[in-house]
Design a binder for these strands. Structure first.
Lengths: 111, 111
DNA sequence: TTTTTATGACGTATATTTGCGTCATAAAAA
DNA sequence: TTTTTATGACGCAAATATACGTCATAAAAA
């Protein structure tokens, strides 16, 4: 890729794609699910849950933090992570809006 | 990455992540949307619609074909593409099921 | 039959993602 | 105060993704 052409697309498509990308790895899906259940926990709890090294999990956490889906609050040595409810709602909404646009009645050849 | 660790996760998370990955680029979102509107069209129609070279669009089409979201039927020189309604429904469902699992009431610190 | 058209296949370059080890640091515990 | 613990930052290697040009091919058109 000589230039990232991503920004040549419609803003809505761009942000929807960005959110989908955050969901495009099972580790990140597992992290979000885990945080949804746990409400709040420290990095170590998540690390133990996943079949990946602490370093790698940390990187996935960083990606989720970067798109705003989770929040990390440092408290002493530990960092408490939790979902960012507002942003998760935005995620749900953006994806739903997009998926709802897709018509599945099918074309003539697919009926 | 020495080894792809993707397969170490729950099957549902894996397939959901795979589908999200297909949606993780605005070009692919645009293609799916375009096909949903057009019902059926040839490669060239899609190429004209996107700010990318024919080669690149073709590659995105291939990716969408690989996950089964679209179908391409060759007819003479041309190839007709359309959505695969069943697979798109699967996509919608898998993602909805996952998103519905995410609780957005928030933890104590986020209320 | 020759030429044009529409595509897919292939190769290439760069960028990004994935995964991990190691080091630094700051708070807690001993 | 020293040591342990929990993390984040940094750097590295391999795998993928992104983007495109060029070539080959087969059907249509001239």
């Amino acid at each position: 890729m000589v230039l990232a052409k991503t920004e040549l697309f419609d803003n809505e498509l761009q942000s929807c794609a960005e959110l989908c990308k955050a969901l495009a790895h099972p580790a990140r899906l597992a992290i979000l699910k885990f945080l949804s259940d746990a409400k709040m926990c420290i990095t170590g709890d998540i690390t133990e849950e996943l079949p990946l090294s602490r370093t790698t999990v940390n990187q996935h956490l960083k990606e989720l933090k970067d798109v705003g889906l989770i929040v990390g609050v440092t408290e002493g040595v530990k960092t408490n992570y939790c979902l960012n409810p507002k942003r998760v709602e935005e995620l749900k909404n953006a994806i739903r809006v997009y998926l709802d646009m897709l018509d599945t009645t099918g074309c003539n050849c697919c009926k």
